[in-house]
Simulated scan of single mutants.
Amino acid sequence: MINPYREVFSMNRIATWLLIVFATVSVVASGAGQATACVGKTLVIGTTPSAQQQLLAEIVSLLISERTGTTVKIERFEGADETHQAQMRAEVDITIGYTGEGWVRVLQEAPAEDAQALFDQIKERYNKELNLIWLQPFGFEHPSSVSAEVADQVAPVVRKDTLKKFPALARLINKLGGVIDNENLSALDGQVQERAMRDVARDFLRDNRLI
């Protein structure tokens, strides 16, 4: 005689195993899809030989690659003008912008007297005239090379068409907004003297729970 309780128990075991198998397959498929979504995507960050720019580029690069799986390359140019021109030619997606330099050397305007007003104006002008987007400043002030009165704000500058291709990129990079103040920057500069720059950048992001 068939034991109905044993039969029900067996059916429950089969159902449980089927659920486990289905869940496992779903997780594997999801992971594969996420990895595939990042294949073939490459971003280029352009910098000058400045150690500060290279450090900031490493921080931005690692944030993007660690959080999205996107390949990010850093290319160094001879100076700010060469870096800007490469970005205008679409050879570079992201640069590190300094408000004073951008306002005077790129837009050919007289030095500004108010740091926040300068940032607002350069952000608007770059967007309308150059199709470049200034993201949130890192948080530290840099002595301006064009004005003795107003310090530069420093921020990532991204091509508008790049942001269209990578819709979540601006929000991701903006997580660095206000995170690197002058004290943090000084500490990072000191660490770079003793350790590899990329390691310093990675530890900074981990310490701030950004990766």
Rank of each mutant, 00 (worst) to 15 (best):
M1P: 07
I2C: 09
P4K: 01
V8I: 15
M11A: 11
T16W: 10
L18V: 13
V25R: 06
V25P: 00
G31A: 06
A37W: 06
A37R: 13
K41L: 09
K41D: 07
V44A: 06
Q52F: 00
Q53T: 09
Q53F: 06
A57Y: 03
A57C: 01
L62F: 01
I64L: 02
S65W: 03
S65T: 14
T68L: 07
T68D: 06
T71F: 05
V72L: 04
V72M: 02
K73N: 14
R76T: 15
G79C: 01
A80T: 07
D81G: 01
D81I: 11
Q85S: 09
Q87D: 10
M88V: 15
E91L: 09
E91Q: 14
G97D: 13
G100P: 11
R105D: 15
E109P: 03
E109L: 12
E113F: 09
Q116T: 12
F119V: 08
D120P: 00
N127S: 13
N131M: 12
S144G: 04
S147A: 05
E149K: 15
D152R: 03
D161G: 06
L163D: 02
K164S: 14
P167V: 04
L169Y: 08
N174I: 03
K175D: 08
L176H: 04
G177P: 09
D181E: 05
S186I: 10
D189S: 14
D199Q: 12
D203G: 00
F204T: 02
D207T: 07
D207F: 05
D207C: 00
N208R: 13
